[in-house]
């Protein structure tokens, strides 16, 4: 106690060290730590911060493939694009480009629907598998399978199964006398199909995470509740759900971010001959950047807008979460 007081006094009375001096002192003391984190800082800088910064810069220009600088062999052409300020963002936010709001509405619908379904189904399956059943390990492993298959493989398998003329679904339902469906035909059917495939692919993760959460809920609580005569539904509502809250909050946050940016399912399931109604923001931005003459600035501003939306969502979600956890 005494030493602490003396320390505080001596620090208080000492002349204030300059920024350089304090940096130097900290360097002398902690140089080892700096050296240890240096590789990580460099890798993150090269792989994340630099592209992010460059993307942000491009979003304030009108750069496209024709106007960027080129140094190819004997050809040296300086960049001919200009800084246009917030012009790209204005075009997006004001709805001038005509695509942003339809794409945003569908992206949000898609995200909410997919996360709600994957969470609900994942929860149901986790509940089933959390009880002593025979062949439990087998069920658990086989239900993880959709997660283990690379997305593009499963998406192509679904595309074959949903084929309106030669697919297995139509041959099954025509067998029982129902009319064949055009599963990937109209925009509405396409939307249902992509949600279905994404739910199928997303359930295992939810299931595994929630199952892990359930197993960490203390068994004594259930026993005590049973003693008090709580019904299974009451036990689920008042023990399982609150016990799962930390896990749920995390998986829902992850689910939202992943689904919002779920590229392969939408891009690969529908092929190129579609009306564009099923494009979410990321696939739309991809088309801007990678079809024909690349529109770098347009795609970059979409990227920044997507990032902003997700940042805002995550911040508010964390805040809401902190509030509910305190309560």
């Amino acid at each position: 106690m005494t030493t602490a007081t003396i320390d505080r006094q001596s620090r208080g009375t000492a002349p204030r060290a300059g920024l350089m001096t304090s940096f130097k002192r900290s360097w002398d003391k902690h140089w080892y730590a700096w050296a240890m984190v240096a590789p990580v800082v460099i890798v993150i800088g090269v792989l994340v911060l630099y592209p992010l910064g460059y993307g942000a810069y491009l979003s304030f220009t009108n750069a496209n493939e024709m106007t960027v600088a080129k140094n190819i062999g004997p050809v040296h052409i300086p960049a001919s694009y200009d800084i246009v300020g917030f012009d790209n963002y204005w075009k997006i936010i004001s709805g001038q480009d005509g695509d942003f709001y339809p794409r945003l509405i569908w992206t949000v619908t898609w995200t909410v629907t997919c996360v709600a379904f994957t969470y609900a189904i994942g929860m149901g399956m986790a509940l089933l598998l959390n009880r002593p059943v025979r062949f439990r390990l087998f069920y658990r492993l086989s239900l993880i399978l959709p997660w283990a298959i690379p997305a593009f493989v499963s998406v192509f398998a679904w595309r074959l199964m949903l084929n309106s003329q030669y697919g297995v679904f139509n041959s099954m339902i025509t067998q029982v006398g129902l009319p064949a469906q055009d599963w990937l035909g109209t925009p509405f059917a396409q939307k249902v199909a992509v949600i279905m495939v994404n739910v199928w692919a997303g359930v295992p993760f939810m299931m595994v995470a929630l199952l892990g959460g359930m197993q960490s809920v203390p068994q004594e609580l259930y026993e005590a509740a049973e003693m008090d005569g709580a019904s299974p539904w009451q036990r689920f509502l008042n023990i399982t759900l609150p016990g799962l809250r930390p896990v749920s909050n995390t998986v829902i946050l992850l689910g939202v971010i992943w689904t919002f940016n779920m590229f392969p399912i939408i891009f690969l399931l529908l092929g190129q001959n579609n009306s564009g109604d099923t494009d979410i923001l990321v696939t739309y931005a991809y088309r801007k950047a990678f079809t024909g003459v690349s529109d770098y600035s347009g795609a970059a501003s979409y990227g920044m807008v997507i990032l902003a939306i997700l940042l805002v969502f995550s911040t508010f979600y964390r805040r809401y979460q902190a509030k509910t956890e305190q309560a």
């Binding site: 595309r159 074959l160 949903l162 084929n163 309106s164 003329q165 030669y166 055009d182 990937l184 035909g185 396409q190 399931l269 529908l270 092929g271 001959n273 579609n274």
Partner: peptide
């Protein structure tokens, strides 16, 4: 009837 997602393959078949 055209299957828009698999038009080319279905056309050939």
């Amino acid at each position: 009837k055209v299957d828009f997602a698999s038009a080319y393959d279905n056309m050939q078949t």
